[in-house]
Amino acid sequence: MAWKALRMSRFVERHPAWALIAIIAIAVLLWLIFAVWPPGLEEAIGRKRVFLNALFNGITLGGLYFLVASGFTLIFGLMRNVNLAHGSLYLFGGYVGYAISSATGSWVLSFIVAFILTALVGVLLQVIVFRRMEGQDLRQTMVTIGLSIVFADLMLWACGGDFYQIQTPNWLIGPIELPLITAIKSSGEPVYLRYPMVRLVIFAASVIIGVAMWLALNRTRIGMIIRAGVDDRDILAATGVRIQLVFVAVFAFGAGLAGIAGVVGGTFQSLSPGEDIRFLLASLVVVIVGGMGSIPGAALGALIIGLAEQLGSVYIPTYAIVVTFLIMVLVLAIRPQGLLARR
């Protein structure tokens, strides 16, 4: 952690103007969240409740995007293969989750089964497909595009064109009150923000997964092997590590994460054909913005894209769809390797 603080202070020394702007922006944001808005501001940009909701929705949607994109970026980071069938894994996990939760009524079980089954599909993909064409980017890309079309067809055949929603367990239905004041009634009584419980739980879960992944990568032996593999896998293989086994494990884990994300997406949104492409696109954008192969980058990218989508849909509804891609174009123009990429 010490080197981070050092880097931070160095950043402030080098770019005092930027640092000042960043500090002011953070202060304004905190004020917007915690203060009671004066009437003039409410007139100018709408009610505080709407702003807070959009902000929270953006963050929680970012949580979902992170779950999908982190697996994608992990696989890319280690094996340099762009798995364009990642969206199919998401949808597959969602359908599995739906089948399990409607058969057994257990929401938690659906996560476990979805993780295991999509991880298995991931293992098969790695062993049967990717191992045969290691290092051939173009072939891998073409094959995974083809596979995603085949998977989409198979799932359409099995599940039909209908949309499915995974039942939220009873203890998660409904809103909870957060200690954030959105308005003061004329009687002087404060009105607190009410926010859907399920979204908070899902966000908390994605934060836990994210932190656990970061810790596993940076503090454990397996993490060390994976990081070494990202840097130079030939040398790593030469030191006697069974690199193919590591590849399979990472691929399985990344795919499993996509499966979990499918269950999450099926719970607070819905599952239908076409969702695979939507989430593949979302994770591509997230990873391009955050930096290919970087877990913190995926988190930052997911947060930015989630916020852009939700704030956009409230404040500039007509152009909401464009905002995401504008951000991508900006990042590609200014910092083409992504915001948090190492190289």
């Binding site: 709408g46 709407v50 929705n57 859907p196 949104q269 939700q310 704030l311 409230v314 509804p317």
Partner: peptide
């Protein structure tokens, strides 16, 4: 009058507004 694109998945912000 609020308008949402056909095929909207996440209505949370629409509902808040």
């Amino acid at each position: 009058r609020q308008w949402v694109p056909l095929g909207t998945k996440d209505f949370a912000s629409v509902i808040a507004a």
